[in-house]
Design a protein around this nucleic acid. Structure first.
Lengths: 117, 117
DNA sequence: CCTATGTATTGACAAACGTGATTTCAATAG
DNA sequence: CTATTGAAATCACGTTTGTCAATACATAGG
């Protein structure tokens, strides 16, 4: 709004030492960071992390009715966590009759694992 | 409140097929899951993930004054994210005169990296 | 002392989160 | 058909989160 500009006091550094070495910014990271953070966020709850842990250890598909009693939580709450994991692409689900089976999608963790190493 | 109890209908499974194979619950995981989830939660924000990414790539200590302009965020917000990372044990900080330098603590990511592989 | 500068903390607020109670849906058994 | 069962969706709630504006804190230079 103010049109009159100022002769800014020229950022007078307190001492001769420069603040620090320049840092290059990997702008390509933007999208990748959002994907990685989405996965990390989904794993950022102890219940969900244990769900993924159990599912991974079983390598096969596991019924929700077996997952619920593992936790001191209501069935809707476990279902809610599974939904979060599904939305993050970490697990998939399949219905067989009355039951729903969940499984880990290993590729979903690969990018994150690679970044971390 | 109701004292009169019922002869519960004895969980009549719809078919012969059992719900699923039994799942063993690794209760030892409880504490580990909380540690892992704490790290994952800290990484579960794009800004923080990029902060860690930049710090890791530099392997040295980086001044806050270099980190702030990398993001379209106010300085207090960046400071807040750095604090979160510090509380999760992922980064450490050091003051030199007016400036604060941050660095990644590599060991903090090891357990998570191992679990992920 | 006083002033300027880099960083951290506080206060406020909307948005998202974790949870349980309740309800809805889908599918099977009778 | 009706009744029952497993799972998901909805509603409500208190808590946490991400953000900025304003402030406080520390240090360096005059």
């Amino acid at each position: 709004m103010a049109i009159d500009l100022e002769l800014a006091p020229k950022t007078k550094r307190p001492a001769g030492e420069p603040c620090c070495e320049p840092v290059v910014y990997p702008d390509v990271e933007r999208e990748q960071a959002e994907r990685l953070a989405m996965v990390a966020k989904a794993l950022g709850d102890p219940i969900r992390l244990q769900l993924v842990d159990v599912l991974r250890k079983h390598a096969g598909k596991v019924c929700v009715c077996e997952l619920v009693p593992l936790f001191d939580l209501s069935q809707p709450t476990v279902s809610h966590h599974l939904k979060k994991l599904r939305e993050a692409g970490i697990v998939g689900s399949e219905r067989r009759g009355l039951w729903a089976y969940y499984y880990v999608i290993p590729e979903s963790l690969e990018e994150f694992s690679a970044w971390l190493s």
